[in-house]
Design a protein around this nucleic acid. Structure first.
Lengths: 103, 103
DNA sequence: CGGGATCCCCGACGATACTG
DNA sequence: CAGTATCGTCGGGGATCCCG
């Protein structure tokens, strides 16, 4: 699924999350700081997300589009599911190596 | 999100999908054929999914666990959303590179 | 401050040969 | 038929520099 290819990328969800809790536009640097990443990756994600019309640029920074918000709403149940699942999952370590920060 | 790290991997959803439509256990080779992949990748995914308890092995092959089914149920809305979104997404990607400003 | 350009590294993937 | 081992390739991601 193309969507997962996008969401699965390194900072995508983090960015959406930061934009979501910010509640308003965030500047490039602000996002970079909030998401703790480097310009190149951030720039890539921003391009992809903007192209996908999940976020918008303008009015003082980046923010979720209407579509982005609706996406977030759908992702939420997934997030909840993942939480319960995570406890089980962690019990038997040996997961894919790519997992760093977020739950 | 760790879950997306798993789902985003190359054949994961495809495997879940094949198992879901099969409705019963599938053998290693059957899966390999259905998902059109090679043994090494298939094996990796199978390990990961089994470890995550999303699929089970036994009784003549691999099949979705209860958890796997519940996951699929949650993924479905996402899939639906992705469908609508996809049309927009593609339209955008199809734009001439020169005038790439969003419409 | 925004964000494109560059360099390097490492892990994921693909193909295939091989064992039980 | 089930699954593992090996090897080369490719692309994403981290860091950094720097111009507009």
């Amino acid at each position: 699924m193309v969507l997962l290819d996008l969401l699965g990328r390194r900072m995508t969800l983090r960015i959406l999350w930061e934009l979501s809790i910010a509640g308003g536009p965030l500047t490039f640097r602000a996002l970079q700081h909030a998401a703790q990443t480097n310009p190149s990756v951030l720039n890539s994600r921003l391009k992809e997300l903007r192209n996908a019309q999940i976020i918008e640029h303008g009015g003082g920074g980046y923010q979720l589009s209407a579509m982005g918000k609706s996406l977030l709403a759908i992702i939420l149940p997934l997030h909840v599911w993942a939480d319960e699942w995570a406890s089980l999952y962690k019990r038997n370590r040996a997961m894919p190596s790519r997992a760093k920060g977020n739950a």
